[in-house]
């Protein structure tokens, strides 16, 4: 079963994603971080296969964290989950920095799982 780390400052999004991940049968949520800096620490301690990360967070934002994560850990696969996914420049920047995909909010369960399973 693939391990997933959720990174979002919103409690409600974290809960939604955890439920989708843990109910999938293919993935298990190994924790959640509230910002980019916590994500980098938890990537080290929890060693996830996949990170689902918001872009717009207080403290270290998602794109800054993405840059560090892919530099520090070549194996980890990062998917951005954000309300800003439909902004062309943000989407392109995330893919350029190494994100595997960008999921827009509001998201559907099937869409999230289809994208995670395709990794």
């Amino acid at each position: 079963m693939k391990k997933v780390l959720v990174v979002d400052d919103s409690l409600s999004v974290t809960r939604q994603l955890e439920k989708i991940i843990n109910d999938s049968g293919d993935f298990v949520c190994v924790g959640h971080a509230k910002n980019g800096a916590e994500a980098i620490k938890m990537n080290h301690t929890e060693d996830p296969d996949i990170i689902c990360m918001d872009m717009n967070m207080p403290g270290m934002d998602g794109l800054t964290a993405l840059r560090s994560l892919v530099m520090l850990d070549k194996a980890v696969q990062v998917v951005m989950v954000t309300s800003l996914g439909g902004v062309g420049d943000k989407f392109t920047e995330a893919i350029k920095l190494g994100a595997k995909n960008v999921i827009s909010k509001p998201f559907e369960t099937e869409n999230v799982l289809r994208i995670l399973r395709a990794l």
């Binding site: 996914g85 439909g86 995909n101």
Partner: peptide, 26 residues
């Protein structure tokens, strides 16, 4: 379910890869 631009829609649908989208944007 959200506002998207065409390139993002295609990557989400697995119609093109992120890498080919970047080539097209270049």
């Amino acid at each position: 379910m959200a506002v998207k631009f065409f390139g993002q829609f295609l990557v989400e649908q697995d119609a093109v890869t992120g890498e080919s989208l970047l080539h097209a944007i270049e």
